[in-house]
Structure formats: structure tokens, C-alpha cells
Nucleic acid binder design. Structure first.
Length: 358
DNA sequence: CGATTTTGACCAGCGC
DNA sequence: GCGCTGGTCAAAATCG
């Protein structure tokens, strides 16, 4: 069994081994992630009538990046795209969002983070090693399922609609608990109230759960950011429930500690939050954005700046400096969240945001 | 005509 | 060792 240490010596091989899977509702045969791909194979996988297609990146001849595309067996409208490897060439702007996110996620997963910290007394959503960021202003679900192979840990970014995300989340939880021998990480963006216990919606909050089933060495714990537009009083001093207020504050501190102690965690969080932020600021022009989420991010950002004294968080949350110079240009002022939003917001009869190669 | 897709064959890893 | 499965190769077909 390979040790994570080996991978840490060669960061490039980390990303090669990590797989980042993206689930999204998409009617098209493949999701447009901004890169050029060439199909080199197709297989019928066991237990799924839909064939799995294999693509390699053709932007550069020697680019090692591969991707697999397959329809979800349970819901044919869901497209599962799995990326493997790191691009060895500059990416077009339209491709930086996905590449940066997947790279950051892969990097986090492979870092073998052990930043789990004691809980702070707030309720958690699920057992296991789950990393999730909830944002009620948008419809995005990032979640991770355990890899089918220990040599290829997989992060799944779930961009499906709430109804399905709930199902998948439950499925993930059960599958994870039933097969706990693989390292796993979970990124979870969702506006699905159905996936969140009602009590958790009383106010936006952050939780960082430390449940570590079976002494997993690669757990990063369970982390979530919750916000609700109709309850934007997270930081108001007159919160009725003092416990919640304290909990909120403690959670923020806990989140800050978690982030500051793990660079990879920061990377993926930055990429994830950037999407939330860009969605709120670019995708919701008439609504004025989601102030609670932005406040939340800003609060965490401020704490991070104060704690590490290096202004890291400000850079990430405000400027989105790239954690991965090879694949990412997160500093782009207009982070192209559209590719995510288009699939996340897609309705059965809406093809307006269908992927297009330009 | 070059690029891309299709598709059967081949290979390696894994479980029994 | 054998069979199954996933992943890749490469020749033929197709497309623009």
C-alpha cells in the first residue's frame, strides 16, 4: 500500500492519482469544462446500462489529464464526469474554474490532512468524513463519495438539484459507512433544505465535525457552511438564542483553525467559496446577492487574517489567488462560475445554458 | 484530408 | 490460475 508520504514528495503525482468527480444534471453527452477533449474509448461498465466514455485532453499533446463520462445509473439526467491528472499546459479562461476546483479538491484529498479538531457542541449533519459547504442562495451540491480504489481517492463535486442531492447524500453516507476502508473527502454545496435538519436552518452556521470512523487517516472531518436568506441575523447582537450565537462564533473560530492548519483545506475551500461568492455577486444581479453568506465568508476571512497574520484568507476570499499556479488562475476577476450554474440551475425543459464549445 | 469517433482487441489489476 | 472488470490502444469509419 502506497503511503501518502510518497505522494507528498512528488506533488504532481498526487494530482495524477487523485480523481475528482463532478455530478451535474446535463442533457448533453458531455459537460463543457472549457478544455478540448478527444474520446479514446468507451466501455459498458458493470451494473450500468449506460456506456462509460473515456476522454483525454487535447489542448496539449502531452497533457496527461483524462476524464471519464458516464450517466448516473439511478438518474439518467445526471452526468458523472471524473477527472484524473493535472493539465501540463496553460488553460483557457473558460477552463480555469473547473480545473482549479478539481485540482484544489484533489490536492486536498491527497494531502492526507489530519486537521480534524474537536467539535464545538453544535449539531452535525452526518457521520463520516464529509466536507460540505452549503449555500442557500444557489443550488449547488458538492459531495464526495469514497473511492473505489485506495490508490485513487476520489472527490465528488455534486452539482445536481436538491432532490437528487438529498438522495445521493444519503447514499454516500450509507456507502461510506458500509465501506469505510477508503479515504474520502466530501464537498457539498446545496440549497436543499430537505437535506438539512430543520434545526440547522434556524440560522446560518458553520460546523466542522470531527467524526472519524475507523480511525481514517485521510479524514478532514465534516465541514459545512450553512446560510439562509430569510434569516440574515447571524451576526446580529440580539440573537434570541445565545447558545446559537455562541455556537456560531465558536464554529467560526473552529472553521478558522481548521482552515489555517491545512493549506489543502484552504485551497479547496477557497475554490468552493469563490463559486458561492461569484454566484451571489454575478449570478443574482437583481437580488442583491446573499448577504448572510457574504458576511459569513467575510467573518471567516477576517478571522483568518487576524490569526495567521499573513492575510491568506483575504487573498483567497477576496482576490482568490490561485493555490495551484499550474492549473489555476483563480485570480480572474470574473470567475467563470457559469459552467457550474448552468448545470446546477438547469431545468428539465431548459436548455438555455447548455454547454457550448465556443 | 485532417481530426474525431467508433469499436473490438488487448492488457493489467483484482478477487475467488 | 482463472475469470471478470476497467482502462487503453489502434485500425476503420465518420465528420467537417
Amino acid at each position: 500500500m502506497r503511503s501518502i508520504g510518497d505522494d507528498e514528495v512528488a506533488p504532481q503525482s498526487q494530482v495524477k492519482r487523485a480523481r475528482v468527480s463532478v455530478r451535474a444534471r446535463c442533457d448533453a453527452p458531455t459537460m463543457n469544462d472549457g478544455c478540448q477533449w478527444r474520446k479514446y474509448g468507451q466501455k459498458i461498465s458493470k451494473g450500468n446500462p449506460c456506456p462509460r466514455a473515456y476522454y483525454r485532453c487535447t489542448v496539449a499533446p502531452a497533457c496527461p489529464v483524462r476524464k471519464r463520462v458516464q450517466r448516473c445509473n439511478d438518474d439518467m439526467s445526471i452526468l458523472i464526469t471524473t477527472y484524473e491528472g493535472t493539465h501540463s499546459h496553460p488553460l483557457p479562461n473558460s477552463a480555469t474554474a473547473m480545473a482549479s476546483t478539481t485540482s484544489a479538491a484533489a490536492s486536498m484529498l491527497l494531502s492526507g490532512s489530519s486537521t480534524s479538531q474537536p467539535g464545538v457542541g453544535c449539531p452535525t449533519i452526518a457521520n463520516g468524513s464529509n466536507f460540505s459547504l452549503y449555500d442557500t442562495s444557489t443550488t449547488k451540491l458538492f459531495y464526495l463519495q469514497n473511492s473505489s480504489s485506495p490508490a485513487f481517492p476520489t472527490i465528488t463535486l455534486d452539482l445536481t438539484t436538491p432532490s437528487s442531492s438529498s438522495t445521493h447524500f444519503d447514499r454516500f453516507s450509507s456507502s461510506f459507512l458500509s465501506t469505510p476502508k477508503f479515504p474520502s473527502t466530501n464537498l457539498n454545496f446545496s440549497s436543499s433544505e430537505s437535506t438539512i435538519p430543520p434545526a440547522l436552518w434556524s440560522n446560518g452556521y458553520i460546523s466542522y465535525d470531527t467524526v472519524l470512523p475507523n480511525n481514517q487517516s485521510h479524514n478532514i472531518g465534516y465541514f459545512s457552511i450553512l446560510g439562509k436568506q430569510s434569516h440574515e441575523n447571524i451576526y446580529q447582537p440580539h440573537i434570541a438564542n445565545n447558545h446559537q450565537a455562541n455556537c456560531q462564533e465558536s464554529l467560526t473560530e473552529t472553521l478558522t483553525k481548521a482552515i489555517t492548519s491545512d493549506p489543502s483545506f484552504r485551497s479547496v475551500l477557497a475554490a468552493a467559496i469563490s463559486m458561492v461568492g461569484s454566484s451571489a455577486t454575478h449570478g443574482d444581479h437583481q437580488g442583491g446577492g446573499n448577504s448572510s453568506d457574504q458576511n459569513l465568508v467575510q467573518n471567516v476571512s477576517s478571522n483568518l487574517s487576524a490569526q495567521n497574520g499573513k492575510g491568506w484568507a483575504s487573498g483567497y476570499f477576496n482576490g482568490l489567488s490561485s493555490p495551484n499556479p499550474q492549473t489555476g488562475n483563480l485570480n480572474h476577476p470574473s470567475f467563470p462560475y457559469s459552467i457550474f450554474k448552468s448545470v446546477a440551475d438547469s431545468k428539465p425543459n431548459s436548455n438555455t445554458n447548455r454547454e457550448q464549445d465556443t
